[in-house]
Amino acid sequence: MDANETEFLALRFESHRSHLRAVAHRMLGSLAEADDAVQEAWFRLGRTDTRQVENLGGWLTTVVGRVCLDILRSRRSRAEEPLEAHARVPAAAGADPEQDTLLADSVGVALLVVLETLSPPERLAFVLHDLFGVSYEEVGTIVGRSPVAARQLASRARRRVRGAEAPGAERDRQARQWQVVDAFLAATRDGDFAALVELLDPDVIARADTGVTSGAAAVAKGATAYGRHARVTRPALVDGLPGIAAFVDDRVERALTFTFVRDRIAVIDIVTAPDLVARLDVRLR
């Protein structure tokens, strides 16, 4: 690989660094270890023929997930605790303060303590699926399990995490999320671009069969084009996640699920393939 190719690859990697660091920190509870995991992903990328990688972001997320899984297993075998289980450590040099604020909001000390009680595969399944919207198929690939087994891992982890929350905390969070879902659906129906941008995380990702769209402006633009479907769309629980489902002749035609960060939509998964839609558990709110 010549200097120009290395520079281009480094630029592509840097565009994913914040996301990868967030994934690693949520799984490891340590900014230092998270940075190590991200750096290891860079080393592995340098040893890979990227011409064979169709989705660089997904490939890097998978690599970071596997590195974190190895770290968690090693930590457990040595009966170690994460550096930040009881107190946060200073951010690494060059860290993004805004990203650190996001990490602090979404992974408090209490949650880190609960996550430490989970097995490494449970922790990884919960973090990747519930916090980042990674599909069970992808999670299963990382942990070496079937998609059904990955779903069960995340479900067990979810029950333990929710069981540790203060009374009413889950109910209050769900109420806020449903308010966002209702506002998203209303803005989509009205084609209100500005309102949609306000509901989305600046780094939101929308994933569909046709590809991935990132950034609040681009996703909002795509959502306004969805308006013709929004007329037959209703709020629904989709595989246990807040979302919306479009119905045609009382049959689900497509479904969207949302993953939230700080009460904004951070990930949108769009399912349109009939065989995949048929496997969804859709329950109207």
Rank of each mutant, 00 (worst) to 15 (best):
L56I: 11
V197Y: 00
P121A: 03
I270D: 10
A218L: 08
G168V: 03
S15M: 05
T50V: 12
I142L: 12
K221L: 09
M27S: 02
V181P: 07
L103Y: 05
Q99A: 10
T50R: 08
A164L: 08
D105V: 12
D269L: 06
F126M: 06
G168L: 02
V134K: 00
I71M: 13
A266Q: 06
T188F: 01
S119R: 10
A79P: 07
T233F: 04
H19Y: 01
A194S: 15
L118C: 15
P202W: 00
T48Q: 09
V180K: 14
A92Q: 10
V282H: 09
Q39R: 14
V161F: 05
G222C: 00
R47Y: 06
A218D: 09
V89T: 09
L28S: 07
T101G: 15
F13E: 09
A37V: 03
A220F: 08
N55R: 11
D49H: 06
E81V: 10
W59V: 06
R156N: 03
R283Y: 08
G240A: 10
E137R: 14
R75I: 06
T272S: 14
V277S: 04
L60T: 00
D201R: 14
L102M: 11
R66P: 03
R51K: 02
A255Y: 00
P121I: 05
L72F: 01
I265T: 14
F13M: 10
R207D: 11
I142S: 04
V64C: 02
T50Q: 10
T48K: 12
R234C: 01
L103T: 12
G215C: 00
G65F: 02
L196E: 13
R156L: 11
A150H: 12
L83I: 09
H19G: 10
G46F: 01
E165L: 12
G211Y: 08
G222L: 08
T50H: 07
N4W: 11
A149C: 07
M1C: 03
E81L: 03
D250K: 06
D209A: 15
D275Q: 04
L9H: 03
A92E: 04
A87W: 02
I265H: 13
L60G: 04
V134Q: 12
